[in-house]
Design a binder for these strands. Structure first.
Lengths: 208, 208
DNA sequence: CCGGATATCCCCTGAATTGGTGATTGTTTC
DNA sequence: GAAACAATCACCAATTCAGGGGATATCCGG
């Protein structure tokens, strides 16, 4: 299992190197302090897993992940950083990172994360996992959808699919005016006043 | 740290019980094979963490999580099951579960998961973490948005926020007709023909 | 310097949406 | 049994959208 490291802090990089070489089952195939010639380096080394810091000279780690995954989708990248803000976490994950661990993670956990990531799994530091999770559970307005009736929810779904009043009327075998009534009610309950707002709210609050 | 178990398989339940009582830092405060009188039981025991199976007599574990979190938001629930399908995972997490581990998880990992969950973190089995992650990375049509110009993307964002042509014109200091032009172009590029469709596509493909 | 892409603006027309104010029929709830 | 709600339908007026024409101006690359 070949590992490459990108980390600008020398002390930290060296301790990671030590961790890898003494792990028994991993081979350190490269260790860099910047993202210069990123793709050439990756292509030459072909690591199985890349440990990537976020704050790096040259291109930052988040953009680096994107490039790596675009050109070498099979390589799994694990972020390894001090940053714990949602922006950086989500940007990294959206760009294709498979893991996200903080720098205060215990050494054995780091190795564990690398192994999981190498096998196609994912590993998050618990606090990061929690943030990811919160992104799922983002229904901070719990009563906001439960107050929709079945019929209203049904019609809202059709709205999300981009249908017009007329089409919805046909689909549901009710009259155009009834669709109109339901939608008026939906707008009232969701505190919106257009289809696009309703659709946006429905998707963000997960009615999809 | 008080732990309650809901698990219908007797063998498995007993091994969990053993695991908890021999852990050193946890106290087993309840162990049940069904979800009958769920809330009364929880209220009487007030566990810190609930280990919840999905397939249970009475109410299933997914609905049980919802009830627990609704009435006792401070209690953290960790799912513990053989199911690994997206539906069950996402339903559980959306209902408020803080962890999701498979039944083949090593005992020490189970304890680790409980401890993380108790501290407000989250723990996923790597394969589950991977599925959660995939939910983030679902931009299967990469070229579909890059072809939007900066201006078009900007206006699309305003559409997502539910603004009318007129408001967008004011916000961007351009004329109503220019907004109209841009939106026509956006529709063309996204292959849609209404605000709501454009909004739906924008959000699903993550322009938010 | 020309073609293409982008951004800006204008007009028109028909269709769709939005927001009122109703009404009727059930069902559930107190 | 009244009150509350859900689902159904109707009419009307004002506004907004969508799609179809155009027209400039700028910038960029060949």
């Amino acid at each position: 299992m070949k590992i490459a490291i990108f980390e600008d802090n020398q002390k930290f990089r060296e301790s990671l190197e030590f961790l890898i070489v003494t792990s028994g089952d991993m081979e350190l195939c490269g260790s860099f302090e910047d993202t210069n010639r990123l793709l050439q380096r990756i292509e030459a080394l072909m690591p199985d897993v890349v440990l990537m810091d976020i704050h790096l000279p040259g291109k930052n780690g988040i953009d680096a992940v994107k490039e790596i995954k675009e050109h070498f989708p099979a390589i799994n990248v694990c972020m390894q950083t001090v940053f714990e803000d949602d922006d950086k976490i989500f940007a990294s994950l959206c760009n294709g990172a498979s893991g996200y661990i903080l720098k205060n993670t215990a050494p054995e956990k780091v190795l564990q994360a690398i192994r999981e990531v190498a096998e196609g799994g994912s590993f998050f530091t618990p606090s990061v996992a929690r943030r990811v999770l919160n992104n799922f559970q983002q229904q901070p307005h719990p009563g906001e959808f439960t107050q929709l009736t079945d019929r209203e929810r049904e019609i809202l779904k059709f709205l999300v699919e981009g249908m017009s009043y007329k089409i919805i009327a046909d689909k549901t075998f009710i009259s155009y005016e009834t669709v109109h009534s339901h939608i008026k009610k939906i707008y009232e309950k969701l505190h919106v006043n257009s289809k696009s707002e309703a659709v946006a709210k429905a998707i963000k609050r997960r009615l999809v």
